[in-house]
Amino acid sequence: MQSFLDFYREHSQSFYNAQLVLAMLGMGANTTVGQFRAVFRRPGDIAMVLALQFLLMPIFAVLLARVMPIDPTIGIGLVLLAALPSGTLSNIITFLGRGNVPLSVTATCASTLICLVVTPIVLDLFASKALPEHFTMPRDKTVYSILVLLLMPLAAGMAIGHFWHQQRHHFAKLAVWGSTIALVGVWVGALGGGQIQILQYGWRTPGVILLFVVSAHMITYGLSQWLRYPRADGFTLGVEVSMRNGNLGLALLVPLFDVLTPENVHHQGALYTMLFGGGAMTVWGLICVSRRQLRFARQRRAGEEEI
Score class of each variant (00 low, 15 high):
Arg168Asp: 05
Asp258Gly: 07
Leu123Met: 15
Pro206Ile: 07
Val67Trp: 14
Ser3His: 09
His267Thr: 00
Ser12Tyr: 11
Leu271Gln: 14
Pro138Phe: 12
Ser215Phe: 13
Pro58Lys: 07
Ala159Leu: 14
Leu150Glu: 03
Leu55Glu: 05
Pro255Thr: 02
Ala47Ser: 11
Leu81Met: 14
Gly34Pro: 03
Leu20Thr: 07
Leu149Pro: 00
Gly161Met: 05
Gly246Thr: 14
Leu63Gln: 13
Met137Thr: 01
His162Arg: 13
Arg66Asn: 14
Thr220Ala: 13
Asp6Pro: 07
Asp45Thr: 11
Ser242Asp: 11
Gln19Val: 08
Leu22Glu: 00
Gln35Val: 06
Phe60Leu: 15
Ala23Asn: 00
Cys115Phe: 11
Met57Tyr: 08
Phe257Ser: 03
Arg168Gln: 09
Ser86Leu: 05
Ile114Val: 15
Ala47Leu: 14
Arg291Met: 12
Leu63Trp: 14
Gly279Asp: 00
Leu286Pro: 07
Trp177Met: 08
Ile160Lys: 00
Val39Phe: 04
Ser224His: 04
Val254Asp: 06
Leu252Arg: 09
Asn245His: 13
Asn245Arg: 10
Leu256His: 06
Gly26His: 00
Leu286Phe: 15
Leu5Val: 15
Cys109Lys: 00
Glu240Asp: 09
Pro102Tyr: 06
Leu131His: 07
Pro72Gln: 01
Arg295His: 10
Gly234Glu: 12
Leu147Trp: 10
Thr180Arg: 01
Pro230Tyr: 05
Gln19Tyr: 13
Met274Glu: 11
Gln2Met: 10
Thr273Lys: 03
Leu25Ser: 00
Ala127Glu: 01
Leu131Trp: 04
Ala130Lys: 03
Glu263Tyr: 01
Leu89Ala: 15
Phe257Leu: 01
Asp140Ile: 11
Glu240Pro: 02
Ala232Phe: 02
Thr94Glu: 10
Thr142Ala: 08
Gly207Met: 14
Arg298Asn: 06
Gly178Trp: 00
Glu306Gln: 04
Met218Arg: 08
Ile307Tyr: 06
Glu305Trp: 04
Thr261Gln: 05
His162Met: 13
Met24Pro: 01
Leu84Thr: 03
Gly222Arg: 04
Arg168Ile: 11
Gly303Pro: 06
Ile160Thr: 02
Ala216Val: 07
Thr282Ser: 14
Ile121Phe: 15
Pro262Met: 05
Gln13Arg: 15
Gln166Ser: 13
Thr142Ser: 04
Leu191Cys: 06
Gly75Trp: 02
Leu199Asp: 10
Leu286Cys: 12
Gly26Cys: 01
Phe95Arg: 02
Ile209Asp: 09
Arg244Leu: 13
Gln166Val: 11
Thr282Lys: 05
Ala175Cys: 10
Leu154His: 00
Arg98Glu: 14
Pro69Phe: 08
Ser215His: 10
Thr236Leu: 01
Arg204Trp: 13
Asn100Phe: 01
Glu10His: 15
Thr136Phe: 13
Gly77Thr: 03
His266Tyr: 05
Leu5Ser: 13
Thr136Arg: 15
Gly178Leu: 02
Met27Thr: 09
Met1Ala: 14
Leu103Val: 12
Ile93Ala: 09
Phe257Gly: 03
Ser128Ala: 15
Ser12Ile: 10
Asp71Cys: 06
Pro206His: 13
Leu275Arg: 06
